[in-house]
Design a protein around this nucleic acid. Structure first.
Lengths: 122, 122
DNA sequence: CCTTGACTTCAACAATGGTTGAACGACGAG
DNA sequence: CTCGTCGTTCAACCATTGTTGAAGTCAAGG
């Protein structure tokens, strides 16, 4: 168990980029938009904690199901510093629920079309 | 049953816009990008068939699940003129399958995270 | 200490998905 | 035939999601 408030911010932009598969520019972009957090060194360089790369990987998959960077950042905003598995679980649920709702809307629309028959011919 | 090659192109941009809930500018945009088709009057005005509004409504929902306009246009490209319910059925399946795959990727990623435990703490 | 590579910011560019406005043409009701 | 509404194109602009390059700074190894 990690001691609360002991999150270590040690990773550089390049390290997070390598670990997440994103370009360094994208890592900075995600930080600017609240998807990940960083502290600054005395020399003004970003230092990330280990979950940054994970957040980015999740963000990339979430983007594929139609969530915007802002929406993803909003979901992640509920994560405490140094999140526990349970915290991630709730985030996962939120993301899946949101995606499911969109899927349901797609399905419902297509189903209505299918059953309506002439719906698309008016 | 409609006689093949008898699709009637009678709807104006404004009518399709009203029927689909999209702005007229968006209707033109979707036509430019192959989501819908139009014929031109002698006076160079667009005339759409009845399925245009339907395609747009489907496109809007599909965009919400992460499909791009290009991808949606590609899916619709398989629709014949004056499509029958069966044709729409296959389109619907394609869209749902694509969306499902993205959902599955999201789920898989989140599940891996959940079970990995320390995956996000490295 | 000094070099080198990785970091910093900032601005420009790009692609996607549109909206808005100007200037002008088409079409239908009266 | 004329009027008003709707259509046309084109260019500019907007937000989103980044990438690229310039100019300069930090940090770690020799």
């Amino acid at each position: 168990m990690t001691i609360p408030g002991t999150t270590t911010y040690t990773l550089t932009v390049g390290e997070v980029a390598a670990a997440s598969g994103a370009a360094p520019s994208a890592v900075r972009f995600y930080e600017q938009h609240g998807v990940i957090q960083a502290v600054r060194t005395s020399g003004d360089q970003r230092r990330f904690s280990a979950d940054a790369a994970c957040r980015i990987r999740v963000a990339k998959v979430a983007q594929r199901v139609g969530l915007t960077v802002r929406e993803i950042a909003d979901v992640f905003a509920d994560l405490p510093e140094d999140p526990e598995p349970g915290d991630w679980g709730r985030i996962a649920d939120t993301l899946v629920r949101e995606a499911e709702e969109r899927m349901a809307a797609l399905r419902a629309h297509l189903e209505q079309m299918r059953s309506g028959g002439r719906l698309c011919e008016m």
